[in-house]
Design a protein around this nucleic acid. Structure first.
Lengths: 347, 347
DNA sequence: CTGAAAGCGCTTACAG
DNA sequence: CTGAAAGCGCTTACAG
C-alpha cells in the first residue's frame, strides 16, 4: 500500500494525498476527511525512508553509550548497564518521544565499534546525537562536532577545547561543588585524614571531583596528601582494589569515592581489613544508585539529577534540530548531598 | 557529498561507485581501490534512506519496552528502568550490533504511545521488533504479527493463541520451574504455610510462577490456601502493600514474592510488623537484581538468564530478517535458584 | 484548490 | 567490465 493506491481509491492525485498527510491547509475539509478515512481503513503509513529522502525532517536522534571497561573486555562477559547509563537512557528516550523523536541507541564497548557512530551521522540515519560515557576530548566526538553535526555531550569539560565545545550542547553535573560539599561535610565531622579514590581521570567528572576535594581541603587549611589520593576504574572492583592498597599504607579516617559502586567495593575492603563503617572509617559515594539506601550502613552519597540532565540533553538537542539553529549551550546541573549513615564524627 | 561526486572525481559512473560500495565482484581491483581511496578521503557515506528506498536491506530493528505502571503515571514522576528492562536492553543492543544491526528503542509509558509502535513497522523504519514488558496477549502486538511483520516477544505464553504465536519468536524464562523449585526448597525447610504474592497477573510470567507455586504445594500434599495468595504490581510498593495486608490476616512462615523489588517491600513490611527475616518469616524473590546480594539478609531468589534471553531474541529475529524466512520459535530458558540467607528452617 | 512533473540519492537489471 | 536508465515512494514548487 502506497500513496498512489490511496490516491486512486480516493480519486485524487498523489499530491493531494501527500497534502493531507502533511497537514497542508489548502485542501477542503471534506476531501481531507475522506482521504483520512481511506488511509485509516487501509492502515496506510507513508514510507519513512521515502519521506526523508524527499525532504521531510528526520526525527530520529542517536544516543551513544560509550562503555569501554577493561574488566568487561578481558573476560568478554556481559555486564549490566550502570544505573547512570540506564537512567539517562530511559529518560532521554522518554523526553525525545514527548517531542516526537525516536532514539537509536548504540553501545560502544570497544574502539572498533566507533566507526558506527560516525556512520550514523554521515549517512543521515540520525539528525543529531547525544554522547554519554566518553573520555574527555574524545577525538571522534570532536570530529563529528567539527563536521557540523548537532551534538549534545554529557560529562565533558568545555575548558579543554572551547572552540569545539562552543559548537554543541554540553551538560555536566556540578561535580566540583558535589565533591567540595561532601568533603566539607566530612571536615565538619572533624575528619582531617580524608582519602580520595577517584574514577578514571580521563572522564571529566572524575577530574572535577578531585578538584573539589582538593579545594575543600585547602579552604580548611588541611594539606593535600598525595598518598591519600588514587584513581581506579569506576567499578566495585576498582573501589575494592584501590582501598585495599590504600589501607596497606595509610590510616585515613574517611574516604571519598568516585561513585557508589566504588563505595561498595570500598566497604568490602574495609570489612576485610577488620574495620567498621562508619566506626573506623567514614565513606561517601557519588551517584545515589538504588542500592545505596539498602547498604549496611546506608550510604551517604552525592546524588546527580539525572532526570534533569537527560531532559536538558534531549530538549536542547531536539530544539536545535527543529529550529535548524546552531544552538550551543553549557549547562551545569546541581547535585545533592544525601546524608545517610556511612559517616560519623572522627574520634 | 554524494555518489555522483565520487563518480566524477574517480572518472567513473555512479553505477561503478555503487558496485564497489556494495562489494560487487565485477569491478577490477585497481578501480575498486582507487574509488575506496576517494571515498575515504572525502568521508563519503551513502545516504541510508536512499539506500533503503533503492532496495538495500534495512538493518535496524525496534525494541519496545512496555512499562505502564499505575504508580509512575499517577505521580507523573520518572522512574528508573528496572534491572530486567535495562539488562535486556543493553544485551539486545550489543547482540544486534554484533550482527550489524542497530536498534531503535521505544518506551511505551502510556496507552497513547502505542501508535508509535505500529508506525515503526508500517513505515518501514525497522525491519522487525522485539517486545518486552507487554501484558499477555497484547492486541497491538498480535496485530503486528498478523500483518506479517517479524516479531520476537519476551514473556508471553504461547498457549493463549497458538495460531498467532506460532508466527513469531517467543522467549520465556522457565517461570514455572523457577517457582516450583523455590517452593520445593521452602518445603524442604519444613515450611507449610507459604504465601505467594505474585506480580500483575496480566503478565505471563506472573501466572506461570503462580502455577509453579501451586503445583509444588500439591505435589507435597500441602493444600493451596487462597488467603495466602495475592497479586500486586511488580514493585517495591506493591510488595509492601500486599505483605502488610497479608500479615494483618495470616501467619505465613514463608513468602514467595513476584520479584526482588516486591521482596524488598516485603522485608520492610515484615520489619514494621516487628518480625525478622528469616527468623520469623523466610523470603524468596525472583530476578536476582544487583541489590539482592547486599540486602540484610542477602536475598534468596530465582535468577533469570537475561543475557541468554536477549541473545535468543536478537539472534533469532535478525536471522529471520536476514534469511527472509518466516522463522518461528519458542524458547524456554532455564532459571537458577540463588540460595542466600533470607530463608531458614521453619520452627 | 489540484495535478503533472521534477527531484531526493541511491541500487540494479539491462545492454553492450 | 561499465554506463545509461528505470525505479524505489515520497514531497513540493510550479502552473493552472
Amino acid at each position: 500500500m502506497k500513496s498512489t493506491d490511496i490516491a486512486r481509491i480516493a480519486g485524487v492525485s498523489r499530491s493531494t494525498v501527500s497534502r493531507v498527510i502533511n497537514n497542508y491547509p489548502n485542501v477542503p475539509e471534506e476531501t481531507r476527511e475522506r482521504i483520512l478515512e481511506i488511509i485509516k481503513q487501509y492502515n496506510y503509513v507513508p514510507d519513512a525512508s521515502a519521506r526523508i529522502l524527499a525532504g521531510i525532517k528526520n526525527t530520529t536522534i542517536g544516543l551513544f553509550i560509550i562503555d569501554i571497561r577493561p574488566e568487561s573486555n578481558s573476560k568478554g562477559r556481559r555486564i549490566a548497564l550502570s544505573h547512570y547509563f540506564s537512567y539517562l537512557t530511559g529518560a532521554i528516550i522518554e523526553d525525545a518521544a514527548k517531542m516526537g523523536y525516536r532514539v537509536l541507541v548504540t553501545m560502544i564497548n570497544n574502539s572498533e565499534m566507533y566507526k558506527d557512530v560516525k556512520q550514523a551521522f554521515y549517512n543521515k540515519t540520525i539528525s543529531g546525537g547525544i554522547f554519554i560515557g566518553q573520555k574527555s576530548d574524545d577525538p571522534i566526538v570532536k570530529e563529528i562536532i567539527t563536521a557540523g553535526y548537532k551534538v549534545a555531550i554529557i560529562d565533558q569539560s568545555i575548558e579543554s577545547d572551547k572552540d569545539i565545545y562552543s559548537k554543541c550542547i554540553v551538560i555536566n553535573s556540578d561535580n566540583f561543588s558535589g565533591a567540595y560539599n561532601a568533603i566539607q561535610y566530612l571536615i565538619n565531622l572533624k575528619h582531617s585524614r580524608i582519602a580520595c579514590i577517584t574514577g578514571e581521570l580521563e572522564k571529566a567528572s572524575a577530574l572535577e571531583r578531585l578538584d573539589g576535594y582538593k579545594k575543600a581541603l585547602l579552604d580548611a587549611d588541611i594539606p593535600v596528601i598525595n598518598s591519600l589520593i588514587a584513581s581506579e576504574e569506576f567499578t566495585e572492583n576498582g573501589g575494592y582494589r584501590a582501598v585495599k592498597k590504600l589501607l596497606a599504607r595509610e590510616k585515613p579516617t574517611a574516604i571519598f569515592l568516585g561513585n557508589d559502586s566504588m563505595a561498595i567495593g570500598a566497604m568490602k575492603a574495609i570489612k576485610e581489613a577488620g574495620m567498621k563503617v562508619p566506626g573506623d572509617i567514614s565513606i561517601v559515594g557519588f551517584d545515589d544508585v538504588e542500592i545505596s539506601q539498602y547498604l549496611n550502613p546506608p550510604l551517604t552519597t552525592v546524588k546527580m539529577r539525572l532526570s534533569e540532565m537527560a531532559s536538558l540533553a534531549a530538549n536542547s538537542l531536539i530544539t536545535a534540530i527543529d529550529k535548524e539553529l546552531n544552538f550551543s549551550a553549557n549547562y551545569k546541573v546541581p547535585v545533592d548531598l544525601m546524608i545517610r549513615e556511612s559517616c560519623t564524627e572522627s574520634k
